[in-house]
Simulated scan of single mutants.
Amino acid sequence: MTTIADRISIAQSRITQAAQNCSRDKQEIDLLAVSKTKPIQDIIAAYQAGLRKFGENYVQEGEQKIIELKPQYPDIEWHFIGPLQSNKSKVVAEHFDWMHTVSREKIASRLNIQRPENLPPLNVCIQVNISEEESKSGICVGQIQPLAAAIATMDNLQLRGLMAIPTATQSAELQQQEFSQLQTAFEQLKQQYPQVDTLSMGMSNDLDVAIANGSTMVRIGSAIFGKRS
């Protein structure tokens, strides 16, 4: 039976291979372990296998895990990667290190106000709905600049980049088109904001094309922790 450590090793090998295929340094690409719905012991197993970055989709679940694990594992970096209702923003502002799904100035403003002064600025990514599907959160490419400009004025937030969930498709052409469009938007953002360094895109089924198009962080869940119950 494969262990969590085995599956992490396989995922890291895939990242290394994908990076080699497009002449990139694998050190430029972070593995974010998506631990939503998974028990604490699975996170500890992944930690013991060397992972330090974990992504949670649900506010209360993430908060409970952080409170439980922080005393013993203070070097875990917690990323919030799910949709956020404004009435739950305080929990993310107080407990997480990263927020990947900012798509409204109102949410950014709340996070900025609610971020405790004793913590470093909350790292944020703007979520882009690159496929412009109605069922998905995020803004269209044309709205990135105004939102980035607003975030840049907020002292308790640090704009780090863009995040997207492209179309779930078997079409390599469509995948390539969407990832390439996002990479272009990312490069433009980097030119304006030197601290921008994160392009959070790519999951188990499309990490090769994501890495070929400049992804710096791939989000992998079930390929590490097994199928969700």
Rank of each mutant, 00 (worst) to 15 (best):
H79I: 01
T198P: 06
E61W: 01
G50D: 01
K36G: 12
A168G: 03
M201K: 00
M99P: 04
P83G: 11
H95P: 04
L111P: 09
R110T: 11
M163I: 08
T184N: 08
R115Q: 03
N123V: 01
I151G: 13
E117M: 13
A172T: 12
S13V: 07
A212Y: 07
Q191F: 03
S200G: 02
I107R: 02
Q27V: 03
Q60W: 06
Q181C: 07
S23Q: 08
K53A: 11
E56S: 05
D25S: 12
R228T: 14
T184A: 12
M217E: 11
W78K: 10
G221A: 10
L69V: 09
G214R: 04
D42N: 08
P39G: 02
I165Y: 11
M99I: 05
V128G: 04
E178P: 13
D75P: 05
L182N: 10
E105N: 09
A49H: 10
S23N: 14
M163F: 02
F54Q: 13
S215E: 10
M99A: 15
F54P: 06
I81E: 08
S215L: 06
I151E: 07
L84G: 14
Q60N: 15
P83H: 01
A45D: 09
Q181E: 15
G202A: 06
D97A: 15
Q127R: 00
E105S: 15
T198G: 13
G82P: 01
M163C: 06
N118S: 09
R24M: 02
T16I: 09
L162P: 11
R110S: 08
Q191S: 12
E63V: 07
K38R: 12
